[in-house]
Amino acid sequence: MTRLDVREVPPPERHPMIHEAFEDLEVGESLTIVNDHEPKPLFYEFQAEVDSFDADGYAVERVAPNEFEATFPKRSD
């Protein structure tokens, strides 16, 4: 599992960084991002644009008031 904390990354740079990290995964691996808000827009973006994103395996957990961990699993295309 790859973990990426994007809380300190400027917002315009977050999505490209996350997409790049996801592309580097092997099939069956997951990318967990740590964010300061629930990443619903990112989920919808992945669902619409990334064929290898396993939307059914997506999970998000609020671990603190400004800390969310979201897991984006990768499946074969």
Rank of each mutant, 00 (worst) to 15 (best):
M1R: 10
T2D: 02
R3D: 06
R7P: 03
R7K: 12
R7H: 06
E8F: 03
P10L: 09
P10H: 11
P11R: 14
P11D: 11
P12H: 12
E13D: 13
E13N: 13
R14H: 09
H15I: 11
P16Q: 07
P16G: 06
P16A: 14
P16S: 09
M17Q: 15
M17D: 02
I18V: 15
I18D: 04
H19P: 00
E20M: 08
E20T: 10
A21H: 02
D24S: 12
E26S: 11
E26L: 10
G28R: 01
G28T: 07
G28C: 11
E29C: 01
S30C: 13
L31S: 01
T32D: 03
I33E: 00
V34L: 12
D36S: 14
H37D: 06
H37K: 08
E38H: 04
P39C: 10
P39I: 02
L42P: 02
F43W: 14
Y44Q: 10
E45L: 04
E45H: 15
E45Q: 13
Q47F: 12
Q47A: 15
A48K: 10
A48Q: 11
A48E: 12
E49L: 09
E49G: 06
D51R: 15
D51P: 06
S52P: 01
S52T: 12
G57Q: 02
G57T: 02
G57Y: 07
G57E: 03
Y58I: 08
Y58A: 09
A59C: 05
A59T: 09
A59N: 09
E61F: 03
E61Y: 01
E61V: 13
V63I: 14
P65S: 09
P65A: 08
P65E: 15
E67Q: 13
F68Y: 14
F68W: 15
E69Q: 12
E69R: 13
E69K: 04
A70V: 08
A70D: 02
F72M: 02
P73K: 00
K74G: 04
K74R: 14
K74I: 06
S76D: 14
S76V: 15
S76W: 00
D77H: 12
